[in-house]
């Protein structure tokens, strides 16, 4: 029980439950199956991208260009969907490939030229968005075909397609993170890059993979984005990167690298989604949303640091006690 309380995911899960309880007491409409489903459906893209961002942050990187990547890939997907004869398969390929290309570009600059991730992605954020706006001249992509827009609301065996995609993404990411050499390398790299490269991990390749994988997931998200909204704005995804990073950070990933879990990030996404939904249902002025989200972020990261410090101090005490027992001098 004590161990469970110390687990970050559990604490955040309890926080999610408390928030949900408070909301459902004030707004009975909150705890209905249809509302809960709509919370999930409205945050699918955030959840998919948070999976990729978790891996990136675990490697001690960060990607602030994902909002621009989302817009970039979404416009390309939309333009391809408009071409007669295109189908779900072509759209999927275009979305994922353009995402991977953008992500890989970040990865190459970070790993190859040793420019810090935040600086590279700050630059590419502007490059991606700028070239997209230049190319579209600010025009929206509209009149998307029905076969494409219906993608978001179609169900297979009673499960909406976006949820199936999300589950697949979670499954694949979990498999990579927990059951492959690559996943262990990602955690090792974030924990200590010098030691990771000394034990024979190709740190450059691992970094490039993390950013390319983030790009691939952004590409998948871009397909859902166009299908959900039926029109695509070249400014799509502006400052969405901050939502994604916030969700991952609330979920317990450390921006210094080495730690972070997919489950935690999913809880982070749900906390943001539930708050957004609850504030509307409770008829609180929407301006309060940022105050609450900001406070939750600050509280979560501060508690983390305080807890870690306590843990380290306890370790020190145990260490000193053992030294004394062993007859050593301090």
């Amino acid at each position: 029980m004590n161990d469970l309380l110390k687990k970050r995911e559990f604490v955040m899960f309890m926080m999610l439950m408390v928030i949900s309880l408070c909301i459902s007491l004030i707004a009975p409409a909150f705890l209905t199956p249809s509302n809960l489903l709509s919370i999930v459906m409205n945050n699918i893209i955030l959840a998919i991208m948070a999976m990729g961002m978790t891996l990136v942050i675990v490697t001690s990187g960060i990607d602030v260009s994902v909002g621009s990547q989302l817009g970039f890939a979404a416009i390309f997907v939309g333009l391809v969907a408009l071409i007669p004869g295109s189908n779900i398969f072509t759209v999927l390929v275009v979305g994922v490939v353009s995402g991977i290309v953008l992500g890989l570009l970040n990865g190459i600059l970070i790993a190859g030229a040793e420019i810090p991730a935040i600086v590279v992605t700050l630059g590419t954020m502007n490059i991606f968005r700028g070239s997209l706006l230049l190319y579209t001249n600010g025009k929206w992509v509209t009149a998307l075909p029905a076969w494409y827009t219906s993608l978001y609301n179609t169900s297979v065996m009673g499960i909406p397609i976006p949820i199936i995609i999300l589950l697949l993404v979670i499954g694949v990411t979990h498999f990579i993170a927990q059951h492959t050499r690559l996943g262990r390398s990602i955690y090792a790299l974030g924990g200590n890059p010098a030691i990771a490269s000394r034990v024979g991990i190709n740190t450059g390749m691992v970094t490039m993979f993390a950013f390319a994988y983030m790009g691939a997931l952004t590409g998948i998200s871009s397909i859902l984005y166009g299908a959900q909204l039926a029109t695509i704005d070249p400014n799509a995804g502006t400052s969405f990167e901050l939502m994604v990073i916030s969700a991952v950070v609330i979920g317990g990933a450390n921006v210094l690298g080495g730690s972070g879990s997919l489950l935690g990030s999913l809880i982070g996404v749900l906390i943001l989604g539930v708050l957004q939904n609850g504030i509307i249902l409770m008829r609180i002025e929407p301006y309060w949303q940022n105050v609450v989200v900001g406070l939750i972020l600050i509280t979560a990261v501060t508690l983390d640091v305080v807890n870690n410090r306590k843990k380290e101090e306890r370790k020190k005490v145990i260490y000193v006690a053992e030294e004394v027992k062993a007859g050593g001098s301090i």
């Binding site: 916030s246 450390n254 921006v255 301006y287 105050v291 989200v293 900001g294 972020l297 600050i298 990261v301």
Partner: peptide
């Protein structure tokens, strides 16, 4: 004083300060 990484703190306060400004001005 507490030792929270700057990027995390200011990610939170970015949203928080903006929220306060929105609440004060009602948007």
């Amino acid at each position: 004083k507490i030792g929270v990484p700057p990027m995390l703190v200011t990610l939170g306060t970015m949203t928080f300060f903006n929220g306060i400004a929105l609440v004060l001005s009602k948007g």
